[in-house]
């Protein structure tokens, strides 16, 4: 499944709170999500990078095909599973992105 862009009505990507904490992020790196590049701040989780990049659903459920993305954010709900470099069923919210990661969704 290709990443679902945020639906219309919710203009643009979610904001960042960098200014609030006085962040001066290191130069980011890229990972790919189903072949498309995605920017990541070092240390961010794959789930956060996806969501910050405007992708908020990256999996469909096995029975009803319902879209899923982040929900609990702390590794409890297992809604946000992704495949990274062939390793299946990783929780996107718990998995720190690394340069060159190839993430596949669906």
């Amino acid at each position: 499944m290709t990443p679902t862009p945020r639906p219309g009505g919710s203009a643009g990507e979610p904001r960042h709170a960098g200014r609030l904490v006085g962040a001066r992020p290191e130069p980011g790196f890229e990972i790919t999500v189903d072949g498309r590049p995605l920017a990541v701040v070092p240390g961010q989780t794959i789930g956060a990078a996806l969501y910050a990049g405007g992708v908020r659903a990256w999996r469909t459920t096995r029975f009803d095909g319902r879209p899923r993305g982040l929900f609990c954010g702390i590794g409890v709900c297992f809604d946000c599973l992704v495949t990274v470099n062939g390793e299946q069923a990783l929780r996107a919210c718990q998995t720190e992105a690394r340069p060159g990661d190839e993430v596949s969704t669906g």
Partner: peptide, 18 residues
């Protein structure tokens, strides 16, 4: 998607600044 637990929304903010 877009529905978070309250703690989930906060974790995303505090941990990843999203």
């Amino acid at each position: 998607p877009g529905v978070f637990t309250a703690g989930g929304a906060q974790a995303l903010l505090k941990g990843d600044l999203v």
